[in-house]
Write a protein that binds this DNA or RNA. Structure first.
Lengths: 236, 236
DNA sequence: TGAAAAACATGACAAATGTCATTTTCCCAT
DNA sequence: ATGGGAAAATGACATTTGTCATGTTTTTCA
């Protein structure tokens, strides 16, 4: 269930600076303000569903979203995350295909829907927007090839270590030093590409080995260099 | 080693019809003809290498290319293939990043290099080219999410069955009914994401079960519906 | 706030997959 | 055409990972 949220001006949106709209002329943002719809959503609520046709894109004003694909055994695979300033749903819209994955909120999230027609007229108005989106899509393609290679070649243990570090980079740490995102062990498993029990066991191992500490279910990365080593991470 | 090939006109290129240039105005193709360089390459020769900076894109006039990423144990992971009419190297160029993967010819292949400046001026000249490329990139992103989900959730046996069908669709069959692409068992393993020996064993099993036949090392798909079932393929 | 549901945790075992060693077959460059 | 090197094939075995069962803890919400 999407509940309408108050529409604020894009111009004043705190997340615009890091978004694909950062260099879009302010005067013309008013057109977006006119056409967009904003929604307030809670954890577990769905922004869009795999298999449906897209009619626009969603710009995230606040919150965290997981993008995932459901396998034919009904098990989800998390492909990536999106947060403030990110745009989601552009892949399906711009390829003219159905959504290849679903998007679900991980916490209280505010998204603005920009209809296809508005977006396309923005493209012609100012070509840097299309180029920005192209850049995002191409960057994501590179990320995807890394993920593919990791899934194909690394062990479960290595992948989990790497993902803990990726989550830390992506979401940062809260006041207790724990990774600031609310994920269940099952969701973690759906990212690593393994069974929930395997993730639980590995997290216990990591704790015993001093790589991490636990604060309830939240993970506190402790020994970063050991995590890097465990994850066999060699950044270019 | 790239050897220069005779430059033919893009306008007459047999693979232009299926390429991102299919709706580019013929008159303006002359500019590409002026700026491009064409190369003739043999199996195993490298078009570009992971980690290098791109200076343009490559358009494939004839032949087959594998796009792969080398893991940190030195093992390659094949991400995708490209053939006549496909464009490669656009991801790195348009994201402003280094090549995230390498490209190597699977057979005698002819490619035309289009420098960055020429490409960008083509973008501004006729915006449909940028949109075509965007569409390709976004489509590939959807393909990548399928691959990720398969690697994470399917068994090696299931993935191999699926890949045999994908290769059949992608490259077609030769006169003997065998999949028309020259891949070693190791390369197959680097696609499936498993050990070479595992692929060899599974191919033997598939043969014993009547799913495929072998013509030397080439694979002849025999029982398609059984392959679909084995690969647990449920197309949307 | 307290009962039910969900999430977390752990053990025991089975199944899948990888590794190493060895032999056979095929391909291609001289 | 042919000898050498690469690729394919197969066996034996180790290791990793998944599955099922069960108990505990945490969260949710009526």
């Amino acid at each position: 269930m999407k509940r309408f949220a108050e529409k604020n001006l894009c111009e004043n949106c705190p997340s615009r600076g890091q978004s694909v709209f950062h260099n879009y002329p302010k005067e013309q943002l008013a057109e977006v303000d006119r056409d967009k719809s904003c929604f307030l959503m809670k954890r577990g609520e769905i922004v869009f569903n795999e298999g449906n046709m897209p009619h626009g894109i969603y710009c995230i004003k606040k919150g965290k979203i997981k993008i995932y694909k459901t396998g034919n055994e009904g098990k989800d695979q998390i492909i990536r995350f999106a947060k403030e300033g990110d745009v989601i749903g552009y892949r399906a819209l711009l390829s003219g295909e159905k959504y290849s994955s679903s998007a679900s909120c991980l916490e209280e999230t505010e998204v603005c829907f920009i209809p296809k027609t508005a977006l396309l007229s923005m493209f012609s108005g100012h070509s840097c927007l299309a180029m920005n989106l192209m850049k995002v899509a191409c960057h994501e393609l590179g990320e995807a090839s890394k993920i593919i290679t990791n899934l194909a070649q690394k062990s479960t243990r290595e992948r989990l270590a790497e993902i803990i570090l990726v989550l830390k980079e992506n979401f940062g740490l809260d006041k207790d030093g724990a990774i600031d995102v609310n994920l269940t062990r099952e969701e973690l498993a759906n990212m690593v590409g393994t069974a929930t029990e395997s993730v639980i066991r590995l997290i216990s191992d990591f704790k015993d080995e001093g790589l991490i500490e636990l604060q309830g279910k939240k993970i506190i990365p402790k020994n970063i260099s050991a995590l890097i080593k465990t994850g066999k991470i060699v950044e270019a």
